[in-house]
Structures are given as structure tokens and as C-alpha cells.
Design a protein around this nucleic acid. Sequence first.
DNA 1: TCTAGTCATTGATAATTATCAATAGATCAG
DNA 2: CTGATCTATTGATAATTATCAATGACTAGA
Lengths: 234, 234
Amino acid sequence: MNRIAVLEAWTGNARCLHCNIRKLALFADLNQEDFDLIHEPIDDMDFDAGETIYTMTDSPSYVYTIRSGLVKLVHDLANGSYRIVRILRQGDVAGIEALNGKAYLQNAVPLLPTAVCRIPRAEIERLNDQSPRLTKQLTERWYKAISDADTWLSELTTGTSRRRVASFLLYLDDNKHSDECYIPSREDIGAVLAITTETSSRIIAEFRRNGWITVNGNTARINRTALQKILLRE
Amino acid sequence: MNRIAVLEAWTGNARCLHCNIRKLALFADLNQEDFDLIHEPIDDMDFDAGETIYTMTDSPSYVYTIRSGLVKLVHDLANGSYRIVRILRQGDVAGIEALNGKAYLQNAVPLLPTAVCRIPRAEIERLNDQSPRLTKQLTERWYKAISDADTWLSELTTGTSRRRVASFLLYLDDNKHSDECYIPSREDIGAVLAITTETSSRIIAEFRRNGWITVNGNTARINRTALQKILLRE
DNA sequence: TCTAGTCATTGATAATTATCAATAGATCAG
DNA sequence: CTGATCTATTGATAATTATCAATGACTAGA
């Protein structure tokens, strides 16, 4: 777990209060008094792609907010393969299930260099007990986790593989910052959509030949209209 | 929405306190004082199979605890088909996403005659604000919803359809009360596993011929060992 | 009891996807 | 720069699944 920059312990105000993504984050609604309740440090950490933020076997002691980057939640299967059950981006929370205290449900692995802030579970529980201003955001995060899981389940595993790839590319293209979006490895696309690496490669290659997407390394430009047509007919 | 028995408004103690599934339910940890905080009635309701408990277009004003029976959560797709994203049983909570206030994420439809208790969202919010004893159970329910969703996503949509059916039958056979478990219509099995009705029918019929399951109407006896072998090799 | 309607099963065939294998392209350490 | 390594692509073929269609089984109500 190299390249982790653990900053100085948070000392009571500035860092979280002035966080530049705070309006997106779990602590969006907290005020100065709430922050004063925090005892343990909330660390900023940086990960490279392919490193591990947490695994299912880690003690579930932290909840993470994604400050920048992209993170996959990976569920390992008994036969040695894996499924990706969700992809998280800026403002999303990873490992919210730590609040239950049982275990992380997946491994969290950055797809790109990723910055997170790591919040001790105990601090979230304390805040939630002593301030009314965290509950709404927590509920929001639980809701988003379930909503995303259900959407993936119902939309991304239905229909032909061509349809699934189109649907997934459109998903990746939502909420992007620039005019390009991240495009995962063909193996990861397969792990999201429950298809083989070869099938996802063939379909991406076909979309490129058709001019519906332009791939450049691990980013792509998407012709949304063309891909949406596929969703209508498959 | 026929055959609904709305019982008398709950008056302050006995009903919930003495509920025979309370140790399983959302209110497991509440005490008399907590119950005294409840203003609006918590209604017991009975539904027949195929009726509707709530739909995505309903105002998300209630959370439901399943007292008995079996409920499918149905996500309608744009092309007119549908996916079943979860099956709920005794003690499970349906519609927990109402707490976020946005919308129900699926339609809830009983597979069997089903008894629920219907809890107004406002009461859960009030209790959660004023008592520390609901938070743990709520977290537990959010966790279970996500855990189930992720399990379905990663286990039930992976591998051959034979494998998926075996996995689903074993799931249905868990936690059953008698020696038989409920077995859904072939169409519903298909909607769970993202396969066609014909394919699920063929596989169920094959399992019957092999003696791995014995079907009787909408219940079945399952040879768990035989089905588990399929999971190992497919 | 009879009948229309629904659901389960099965067959034949087409379409899709997985599997096995090879090649091409990209990347990285030295 | 160069060989080793990894990823993406493509081909050939087998296996799986969907589709279209028919039949059998069962059920609710006339």
C-alpha cells in the first residue's frame, strides 16, 4: 500500500470545513460544533490504480469518501473469477457497510489514481448520536448504494451483451468532468456485465469500427445518440 | 387492493410490544417509552399473492415489515419485461428506501398470502431522532438490503443458467420453515436470473427428471447436495 | 362436468456467447 | 532500444441460450 500520504491529524476545524468537495460529501450538512465532536483523525489518503483501499477481510473500521478518482467494488467468486458490483466516483461513499460492523462486502480497488478521506466508523457513530445533521446524509448514502446496486442488477445484466456494453458506456459517460470518460479494461467490463473478456473486446472493437466511440488509452469519447439507439432495440 | 384488513389504530403499547416476530423486526430493540412516542397508527395488512403492496409511483410514505409470507421486489424495464431484484421473507423490511423520501425503487408484490405491518415513515424518523435504540436496527436493515442486492448481483447472474437455477433454488431453500420451500413460476425464475421462461422451465424439468428436486405445486423439496455439486463445476 | 385461459414442458432451429488459440499492439524494466 | 509481458483484437468452433411454435397439465368459473 505505497504512496499513501497520511496528512497530519485533523485538528478541529479547517480541513473538513473547507474541503472543496464538502457539498458532495457525507459531512455536507455538519457545522462547526459538529466538527468539534470529532476526536480521531480523519486522514486524506492517495492510492494508485490497482492498489487496495480495503478488502473483505479487513476489519470494517473506516468509511471512505471519494475525493477524486474512480473506484471499483470487487466481489471475488469461489471459482477464482470476480464480479464488479459498482463503480464509485467523486462524492460517493465506499464501505458504508462498515457502520454495521460485520464486514466489508467487497474489495475496493481504484481504477485511476484516487484520493479518499478515511473516516473512522466510531466518529460517524458518535456524530450520528450527538448531532441530527448527519442522519440525512447517511440515509442518502445508504439509499444511493441500494439504488445503484438495483440499477446495475436490473439494467446491466439484462439483454444481449451488445446492449449491456452500450448501457455501461452510457453510465460511464454520465457525470463525467471532461468530454472524455474513463473506459475500463475489457476484462473489467466483462466482470461488470457478466460476459467474457473476449466478448467485451469484440463489442468495443465493433463500436469503434462503427464510429460510435473513440478510444484513447483508458478514456473514450461516446456518441450517446448512437448507443441509446441500441438500448431501444435490444 | 382487496382483502386488506386494517386493524384498529395502535393505541400505545400491546400490539407492537407483544408482536410475535418482534425479535426479528425493525422494532426489536425498542422499549415501552419508545413505543409511547408513536403517534400515527401502525397498521397490520394482509395481501393475497399477486396484489400490490406498493409501486414505484406510490408516494414513499411507509416502510413495511414482513410478518409472514413472501414478497418479490419487481423492477419494470423499458421494453415491457421485468426483473426481480430481491425476495423478502419474514422479518425483512420492504421499502426502507422510503426513508430517503425520494421514491420506492421497485414494486413490491406478494408471492404468497402475506401479512405485513405498515409503519409510517414519519414515525421512524421521529423514533430515530428521539431514541437511540432504532439506529442499530435501521443500519442492520440497510446493510441487509445492500448485502442481498450484491449477493444477487454477483452470484445469481454469473455462470450458466443451470448454475444460476441451482444457486437460486438453494437460496430459496435456506431459512425455510418446513421441509419444503416455495418455488416461483418459471417466468419469475427467469426474471430473477436474467434467462427466458423456457430456459428456466427446461432446467427445472431436468432437475426433476434427475430427482434433484421434487416439485409439488408451488413448493419443492430440494436435494441440496446434488445442487451444490453443480455450483462447484459450473 | 365442460371450457377457456393460464402455466409448464418440449421440440426445432436460429442467434448469441463461450472457449480455445493465435496475432497484434502497447508498456515497461534494464 | 529490446525482449518480456500484458492487454486487445480477431478467428474458428463448440456450447449455450433465445426464439418460435406446439402440446400437455392444471385451474377457475359457467
